[in-house]
Nucleic acid binder design. Structure first.
Lengths: 353, 353
DNA sequence: AGCGAATCCTGAACCGGTTCACAGTCCTGC
DNA sequence: GCAGGACTGTGAACCGGTTCAGGATTCGCT
């Protein structure tokens, strides 16, 4: 046997090869089996007789074999990678969504490649290109514009699941929360408390769920029989972070002094709160404040924040399951969850001016 | 069927090939150049005459060429991937560190593969194995035990950088904060306020920086001329989250009622705060509370939290730079930053019992 | 025009795990 | 004793971008 293979790597001129990782061929030689069998042990252990399998596994252990996903991926066209593109992993809300996704996918030996867009379409584009080149098997994306360049992933093994993707996607499944309804509840709450000068700190216009939350706000005002231009002061921040919340609120107070602020996000609300406190304003006596997400810490803030609750972890779990279900093709599934306003102590009756 | 085994991919029997991604060879054919030139355009554009390069780039655009990192990686032994293994990306502190890393590495076309260990050695092991198989070029790890299985990454192109790695690592660079000093400051502050019954909610014993913070606490007590067993009540939680903080504090109050609590982490402190508030206890009048990290939101808590500040983003930036500097071999660099106690309003004089 | 150097291009071989058509072995039942 | 099927094991070909020695062109200068 062994008629001296053509591409024999054992170069007799040098002793041990210097820096070559052990490969299936090395393991095969040591275990006295063919390289195909080693591959079988790795991928379909049940198809190998226990005795043989044990021999191969022993050899792998002794040689410290660590496979190369890249090589396998090349032939099998499976990477074991799932791309996750979120607005901001540093936001506890998205971090929680991520944990949900993780909890579902990790037991299927899928590695997550996560990236944050920070509401920047260019960043999103870069991330998607990188993921495409990495050959991810599936994509989980909370798109921040309508460019849809993620559709190219639709025919990957696991397809695409979109989070918070405004209108219906042309490809893949999607899971969203009813942002219009959530925002409407928030603004309605404030209007009922008598507020007639309300600031709305929102994210960029290209972000679907920011647009929807704005719709909800406008719709709530309209339903109350009021004119948006009389009531609402709109502020736009480029990224929904606490730092931006501080800046936006500082600037806002240079122009006017609303009796309430609605934020697109709890982090921004946190920033707003810090800005107000530094200015010596009391919440809710001087200014009412509403957040969005119901992130863990808002309950312990001073004062506890009124906000719109969204089931973050659950969203992640559902998204992960959708991806695994493989039903992301031909239209895929749709899921729409409803958020709920949680009234705490950061909102109160409008102060008379 | 399909006995056509020729390596020729243009199968005239079927019109367009069904599901094959365009490769360098397709681009080469279209641009009338050799496949090597296409590779050069991708990797060393300056080595290709502008006219030729333009032709190739046009062809790539027209064909919608998306390279396969896997194929390239196989030959070049570079993956463009950097593994990042952190305790918990959901923790704003680590999320911030991650942003720092990201800001440095993204402009070098490195993709981050991030994973959370949640203080679980088994999870850490799984993550590291996955990263090894993905062929990451470098590793950034905040190890949660002494197993050192990450040393196998030492001879990757970019080596290893360890964060918060207790004693000196045997391989790679490292950047740490002086946890002993930080914890000592925290406990000393409480002792000076007259507290003599202090709970310490800490993470698992296998985590280096938890061990160090404990050392700091013990050392501070000793310096004050007191006996740890008289003063300190130690509680251990498996994961340093707000939820665990709530549970731990709830349980703690079933056993005893310290006048102060030191937490290994701001998230745990948040949990403790929530637990105390639900129990109707006032902070700091009834119980003083100290966190660790100085995460963004603690300043806005009720009351603002006394905590130990660590420069999170900066740590990430430095770690990223260390990785890029390539000096991770032969011992590598060491960096030790010093944290600082930030006294706010969650700590006050011990209430007389 | 003539010539050597510098620059640009070429394409077969290669990286290493997977695939799959095929061969060998073992077992059952007639 | 032997056909037929189930189960195991084999190894050349393959995936597609990169490498690199060598060929082809262009350039500078006399």
């Amino acid at each position: 046997m062994v008629p001296a293979v053509t591409s024999d790597r054992s170069d007799p001129s040098k002793g041990a090869d210097v820096r070559r990782a052990v490969g299936v061929r090395d393991v095969a030689k040591r275990a006295q089996v063919s390289l195909g069998t080693v591959s079988n042990v790795i991928n379909t252990p049940d198809s190998v007789r226990p005795r043989t399998r044990a021999r191969v596994e022993k050899a792998m252990r002794e040689l410290g074999f660590v496979g190369s996903r890249a090589a396998g991926q090349l032939r099998s066209r499976k990477s074991g990678l799932v791309g996750v593109v979120l607005p901001d992993v540093g936001n506890p809300y998205w971090a929680d969504v991520l944990r949900g996704v993780e909890s579902v996918l990790e037991e299927h030996d899928l590695t997550l490649v996560v990236g944050s867009t920070h509401q920047d379409p260019a960043r999103q584009e870069r991330l998607l290109r990188a993921l495409a080149q990495q050959g991810v098997d599936g994509l989980l994306v909370a798109p921040i514009d309508k460019l849809r360049s993620w559709e190219q992933f639709a025919d990957r093994r696991l397809g695409v699941v979109a989070l918070e993707n405004g209108d219906a996607p042309d490809a893949g499944s999607s899971i969203s929360l009813d942002n219009v309804e959530g925002a409407r509840q928030a603004i309605t709450h404030l209007l009922e408390l008598g507020h007639r000068s309300i600031a709305f700190i929102n994210g960029p216009r290209n972000v679907p769920w920011c647009v929807e939350r704005r719709e909800g706000v406008l719709s709530g005002i309209q339903t109350a029989g009021l004119e948006a231009s009389d009531v609402l002061i709109e502020v736009e921040v480029s990224d929904l972070t606490a730092a931006m919340g501080i800046t936006a609120t500082d600037e806002l107070w240079g122009r006017c002094e609303p009796t309430a602020i609605v934020c697109a996000n709890d982090l921004v609300a946190l920033g707003a709160l810090l800005s107000l406190q530094r200015r010596g304003l009391r919440v809710p006596e001087d200014v009412s404040l509403v957040g969005y997400d119901d992130v863990e810490f808002v309950e312990a803030l001073r004062p506890p924040l009124t906000t719109v609750r969204q089931p973050s972890f659950e969203v992640g779990v559902i998204a992960g399951q959708m991806l695994l279900s493989g039903a992301t093709r031909d239209g895929g599934e749709r899921e729409l969850l409803t958020p709920a306003l949680i009234v705490r102590q950061s909102t109160g009756p409008a102060r008379l001016r």
